[in-house]
Nucleic acid binder design. Structure first.
Lengths: 349, 349
DNA sequence: TTGTAGGCGTTATCAT
DNA sequence: ATGATAACGCCTACAA
């Protein structure tokens, strides 16, 4: 019934050799006679030998140092769930000899990333999980890591020029299409909508463009003469959103729906006029203020990028690699979750 | 820097006792003097001792038998992803001494469940993950398992009378509300919608009722005079859906949206008249035929119950319990995923 | 080229 | 009540 798991000792006995020889065959270390090699390989195949990962790891007995480098949640609440995800993973893997530590950088300051990434390297990590927010600097960092034999995983932002590491994130173009689909439904028989980019000082530029492209592609595919206009709330105007939005709506009175390409949809929702025809809003990310707007009805849909899961998976992949020799998946695209006032709660954990 | 992990030997040395004594304290086996006990407990707290799970497991060296009992995907395609989820988990945990086997029953035949569940017990499992489709019979099975000291987890269907096992699934009432919200948006300024129950021969009765209740609750909360009618396609008419649906629409010409409470929305979508005013459809589950309808536009939204993840988690929870002594969560409500033609692909894995 | 011995951290047993 | 010791399966070092 419960067929006992074969051990190296079993195989050695069957082949009439010693454990050491079997081990040499398994690990292809050579120094084995042809005869013994053939015999052992045959047996290995026959019984479909699976090494006991637990025992293998017990012997290794090394503590791996896994460092995580992400934007500071204090500067942008979007990142707060990442910390949770990291801590969850840390709790799960510390028992398996993986020690995880988090470093935070200021997402609005490239310099902060540079200095923190140097600090990370100084700590001699075995692996690093990080968010490559700044393209050029991220590439430099990747190079340094390679030189130091540091295993890498990235999440949230895609570093297209380098495909040597694992990436966990979303298909942004596709998420723009999803926003398009939702907006399409919200518009009913109206035909005019807007894309609004509201970013902070740091560069989400590529992100926002990809999303807009997806959004527009969706409507173009419909071939029904939709009119999509783009508006960018300037960096410095982020404090004067109300005015910027009012002016924009005055200039484009026919707009019945707005797609905000960042997590700042709540700023826009708050700035919308209370009177006049309702304007539908689709935005990103389950931060508290956005959820409030979802509940009050001033935001219709949010797209969830699942930052917690992204961070959790990044850390888990590397941890499992260290602890259990598991292969690291190179690309993991998370689903594009659609959130309304009725289903947000289960995504908050 | 890398502060070494403390072992039982370290603690024994610090406390000036032997490893055996430390072990007795950790496992509360008694037979330890008050003095030694205090000293050791204090040290354990101070250093926040974390046992090495790998070593612990190595010592245990037992192969656990975990059996899974689910409906046969051949009889209902909804269950196919569960098999994948189970196989994924099986692959992950076999290296840790958990052997997983699946048993299938016919979801349309209570007898099949009874006989298969008996077969499962005959195999002397250490743990069982199963879908309690048939309420009474499931309770009986739970009792037998308890008697035989079999650890249990259930998924998909909630066994309210018994809260001694782990459950993974969805909040059905809430998912009805989500459907309500989506329908609300799809209706635009129309005011009449329908709930259609299309089940097969077996009893989804409780499921369908919960979903309908949530759906109606949502619209009642709006206080805007929506008119919701219910229609049930009789068991035997499942082959004559077209006629049943046509008659229903003829009797209720004002209906602009239909909520199908089972995975059979495609049957309804195919039966809708091609001419006349469009009817919006919201249904459940990412089975192939439903996805086809999503893509062609005859279904607007699907709610994803994530059967693969449900099965995967059920198996994982028990496996981790056996392999690593992890606590089993008692209740895991999965998010209610909203699916459109634009985002279904990432949910198929 | 091959075999043997010892150790990884935990736990169970047996003797003290 | 306590300590010494062997074992789990794998791997490495060293001896033959």
């Amino acid at each position: 019934m419960l067929k006992k798991k074969y051990t190296i000792a079993d195989i050695a006995f069957m082949a009439g050799v010693s454990k050491g020889t079997v081990d040499r065959v398994i690990h292809k270390r050579g120094k084995v006679s042809k005869k013994a090699h053939e015999k052992i390989t045959k047996i290995l195949k026959e019984i479909d030998y699976q090494p006991n990962l637990v025992a293998r790891n017990l012997k290794k007995n090394k503590i791996y140092r896994l460092l995580v480098l992400i934007p500071d949640p204090e500067k942008d609440a979007y990142w707060a769930p990442c910390v949770e995800g990291i801590e969850t993973a840390a709790g799960e893997f510390q028992a398996f000899g993986v020690m995880i530590e988090t470093f935070l950088f200021d997402p609005s300051a490239t310099k902060s990333f540079i200095s923190k990434s140097k600090e990370v390297l100084k700590n001699k990590p075995d692996g690093v999980v990080f968010v490559p927010l700044f393209y050029k600097e991220a590439l430099t960092f990747v190079e340094s890591c390679k030189k130091n034999n540091v295993t890498l995983a990235t999440f949230n932002s895609y570093l297209s020029a380098d495909n040597t590491r694992s990436f966990i994130g979303q298909d942004l173009h596709r998420s723009g299409r999803v926003a398009g689909k939702l907006m399409h439904m919200l518009l009913g028989n109206k035909k005019q909508a807007a894309v609004v980019h509201m970013d902070e000082a740091y560069k989400n530029a590529i992100h926002m463009q990809e999303k807009e492209k997806g959004f527009r592609d969706y409507f173009e595919g419909l071939k029904q003469g939709y009119d999509i206009v783009t508006h960018k709330v300037p960096h410095k105007d982020i404090k004067n959103v109300r005015k910027s939005v009012k002016d924009f709506l005055k200039d484009n009175p026919g707009i019945s729906g707005i797609f905000v390409t960042t997590s700042k949809a709540y700023l826009l929702a708050e700035a919308l006029p209370q009177t006049g025809p309702a304007v539908s809003v689709v935005g990103y990310d389950l931060i508290d203020k956005n959820i409030e707007c979802l509940r009050s009805g001033s935001i219709d849909f949010l797209i969830h990028q699942n930052p917690k899961q992204q961070a959790y998976l990044g850390v888990s992949y590397l941890s499992e690699y260290f602890a259990f020799d598991k292969k690291i998946p190179d690309n993991k695209l998370l689903p594009i979750d659609i959130i309304t006032s009725e289903n947000y709660m289960h995504y908050l954990e």
